[in-house]
Design a protein around this nucleic acid. Structure first.
Lengths: 215, 215
DNA sequence: GAGTGGCAGTGACTCGTATTACAGAAGAAG
DNA sequence: CTTCTTCTGTAATACGAGTCACTGCCACTC
């Protein structure tokens, strides 16, 4: 483990007790993920709790026919709540976690994270807080799918993207369509409309966001 | 508190440690909900953790225009995961919990349930398990909304209903439509189709389910 | 500079679902 | 029995979004 990783970890998980952080450093595996690499996939057994210390992960759902949709992003300091649900998941559909940018993750063996729940109050709080946060985000996603038209969902998607990685959105229309489980043509049309309002500017392979709030 | 309530509680929460159950009995409020009554509503502060010892609750989402959709049901022995997320929720849209049948709920003051997390391992496990379970169910709901057509969602809905309250579904088409955030006419048509396959029989104000699996 | 492949724009068409409008049927109330 | 209300069935229509077909555009390679 390099010192760089260590300091990123310490910085983003400052709320954890000192002895706990030492335990984590001592017993976990640090792993580097390249952009596009997969962190974990359900269906396979999950044997570790995953913490994110650097980079950006996206958590998304995929059905049997390969259609997918974005659940939420994980930023440094977050944990993958799913990896804490170590109960063997036997559902048909899949959750995937993929690195959007290069990322640095920390793998904690499940039996330890289980043990720490009782031993370290800050760990316990962290886990509970993670659940809550993810639950909330999932609900928001659910809302937007259930109640909103595609135009609003796109807006929601763009906003979220701006929040985690800035106003230059380096994605093709096709990629956006996939994450919203829609189709390129439709997204193109909606983006065009947004451009006409002046909220964004379209370019090949990236979108320049100006102001999404006023729309 | 009547003895009847007490014994229902003990029966459905047998996995909790004895001393914990005594604390619960000593410090909580038991409350009876009539069919249709509301257990809690977000937006208002949540000051208690809610356990269900008798009856059936439905947890659903409602947007600003009054459209709603069902998230999941809670059965005796379950807890309302949301009521454990005591962090003041400031989101715009609402979650509601309503009694489908007459129900018996137990209100535990938040500060106690917080305290018990550290003190009673069985409580801690219970809380974590609740989160997991609700998360899973929410994901299933999400899946069905995102990937499935209304026909499959209806099927999913009926199956879930059968599981929690038997093969006599005492609901009008309108009620079903609302919970799926669709419209009555559409549901009527789809139900008619199902009847033609022999899976169900339609009656005024209730549906007799025969076999939903073979469809 | 010609060829090639991925990306973006656009129109026509289809499909599922929502909406509107109405009519008949079953109960409830009088 | 009559009236009223609530529930259910059905047909016509409207609309959003997905699909198909095709065109033009940019960037990269040879």
């Amino acid at each position: 483990m390099e010192n760089l990783d260590k300091s990123a970890f310490l910085q983003h998980f400052a709320q954890l007790e000192q002895p706990l952080r030492e335990e984590i450093l001592a017993h976990s595996t640090f792993k580097h993920l390249k952009e596009g690499e997969e962190a974990l996939r359900t269906g396979q057994y999950i044997t570790s709790t995953v913490l994110l210390s650097e980079g950006l992960l996206k958590v998304y759902r995929e059905d049997d026919e390969g259609k997918e949709f974005l659940m939420y992003y994980l930023e440094p300091g977050n944990a993958c709540a799913l990896s804490m649900m170590c109960s063997a998941r036997d559902t048909q559909s899949q959750i995937r976690v993929k690195a959007v940018d290069d990322a640095e993750i920390i793998l904690i063996p499940s039996h330890l994270s289980e043990l720490w729940l009782a031993r370290y109050k800050s760990w316990h709080n962290f886990v509970i807080a993670s659940y809550r946060q993810r639950f909330e985000e999932l609900l928001q996603t659910l809302d937007s799918i259930a109640f909103k038209g595609l135009d609003e969902r796109l807006l929601f998607y763009l906003k979220r993207h701006v929040k985690v990685s800035g106003k230059q959105i380096r994605l093709s229309h096709q990629q956006i369509a996939t994450e919203l489980s829609s189709s390129r043509e439709v997204i193109s049309r909606l983006l065009k409309k947004l451009e006409q309002t002046g909220a964004i500017t379209l370019n090949r392979n990236y979108i320049q966001v100006h102001d999404l709030e006023k729309v």
